[in-house]
Each structure stands twice: as C-alpha cells, then as structure tokens.
Design a protein around this nucleic acid. Structure first.
Length: 236
DNA sequence: TAGGCCATCTGGTCCT
DNA sequence: AGGACCAGATGGCCTA
C-alpha cells in the first residue's frame, strides 16, 4: 500500500509544514491558490503532479479554515452555556456542547411557557402585554411574554417566543413534552457527578449533556439530523 | 492499553 | 467552474 491516502497526506503535510515554516500560512495558501487556479484551467488528467498537489493543498486549506470557523462557532456556543467555565475546567466536547445546548433551549422554552401561564393566571388574561395596542404601536407579531408593566421593552432584542419559533421551522421544540421546570439555580452551586462516562458535572436545575440524562423527547425527534435543510439552501 | 476526542486529509455531492 | 458541505479514514494526544 505504498500509495495509500495516509502516506500521500503525510507527504502533503510535509509540504504544508515547509510552506508554513518558510513564511506565514496565508502566503503559502495564496501561492497554492494561484498555482491551483492556473492548474484548474487544464483538465485534471493533464495536470502535472505538482499542480495536482497545489490544488490539493488549496482544497485542504479551505477545509481547515472551514473546520476552524466551525470550532470558533462551537466555542461561542460554549461561552453562553450554563456551564462552569475556566482554565481548570475541561472544555465541553463538541457532542456534549450540542446536547447541552439542546437541553438548555428546551429548558428555556419550558420556562417561558410556564412564565406565560403564571402571568395569565395572575392577571386573568387582562395584562397589557396581551394587548399589543398598549405597547405604543410596536406591532408584535405574537403576544409578548408578559413583560412587567412600566418596563420598556426592547422588541428587536427579545428572543423569539415559542409561538414565533413555530413559524421558523422549529416547532418541534415547542412540541416537546414539558419536563418539570427546573428551579433557576445558578451554575455556581455544587456540581453533582453521577460517575458516568464523560464525567459531566451536574448542576442543580441545569440540563446535562450526558446520554444518561437525555430525556425521551420522542415528540421532536424529527427535528434532528438529516431532516434539517441546508442553511444555504433553505431559501429555495 | 483501550477508548474518547480531535485535527486533518480526501473524494464525493450539492449549490451558486 | 469553483466553493461549500459532508462523511469516512487516519493518526496523534490524553485519560482512566
């Protein structure tokens, strides 16, 4: 197996390492891109070994950048998760981040529903929030979730309500069976580890990403995975 | 040492 | 045609 992909990629890695060592990676990328652009004008069968290699370097560099951007977005997601941050805490894995985010969204959605229910109970459905005309003509698409009387509402910054989510293709979240609303405990309370795989610390009232704590929300399983349209093509 | 996680390469497919 | 996206393969690093 002398021409195995592993050996070929090792060769390319050496080329990249040499290019990176000679200068900045951007410069190496630009050189590779220029050579690849010239080479791409020809038929691939007519391309020389080095031209093919340059094209491969360009594609590899693009893919690296794409994955790097994805990791940056993942870090941004980690930052807003109710989880212990800090140098002494191990970073959440990607799968754990996604599972925790999902549970967190479900929890927030449920809390919002519960809050709306409580407000309607207290005010008997006569709270001004349920009458958009009382909000200075801002014209809500959906009733606001019971903001306190007298407090200014920054409408553009409000998170979408569960009802509005249904109009954006996320209705499955709302369709989830309501788990018991967790108390609003801050993540600073003592974590409880159940000693399962992954070693996720458990915070009181906070969603856990570990597989043991995934609630059976079969009602919205159709939201996951391959059924989601591509972001770049959902406008069609 | 096995298993988990990750980065990277690679070829294929889809989209603009 | 070129780029974005995806999934499989591979190897490295780390931890229990």
């Amino acid at each position: 197996m002398s021409d195995s992909p592993a050996e070929l990629s090792a060769e390319l890695r050496n080329a990249m390492a040499m290019a990176a060592a000679a200068g900045d990676k951007l410069g190496a990328f630009k050189a590779a891109a220029a050579a690849a652009a010239a080479a791409a004008k020809k038929d691939k069968k007519q391309m020389s070994e080095s031209e093919l290699q340059q094209l491969r370097l360009k594609i590899n560099s693009r893919e690296r950048k794409r994955m790097h951007d994805l990791n940056i977005a993942m870090d941004g997601l980690r930052e807003v998760m109710p989880y212990a941050h800090g140098p002494s805490v191990r970073k959440l894995s990607k799968i754990a981040t996604l599972l925790l985010a999902r549970n967190y969204i479900l929890m927030l959605t449920n809390s919002l529903e519960e809050m709306k229910r409580l407000v309607s109970e207290i005010y008997g459905g006569h709270h001004p929030a349920y009458h958009p005309s009382a909000c200075g003509g801002m014209g809500h698409a959906t009733p606001l979730s019971g903001h306190p009387v007298g407090h200014p509402v920054h409408h553009p910054l409000l998170p979408p309500t569960a009802a509005s989510l249904t109009t954006t293709g996320i209705s499955a979240v709302r369709a989830a069976p309501p788990p018991p609303p967790p108390p609003p405990a801050p993540p600073s309370s003592n974590p409880v580890s159940h000693g399962l795989g992954g070693g996720f610390p458990h915070w009181s009232g906070m969603p856990c990403p570990c597989s043991m704590c995934q609630m059976p929300t079969a009602a919205h399983h159709h939201l996951s995975g391959s059924s989601l349209p591509r972001l770049t093509s959902d406008s069609k």
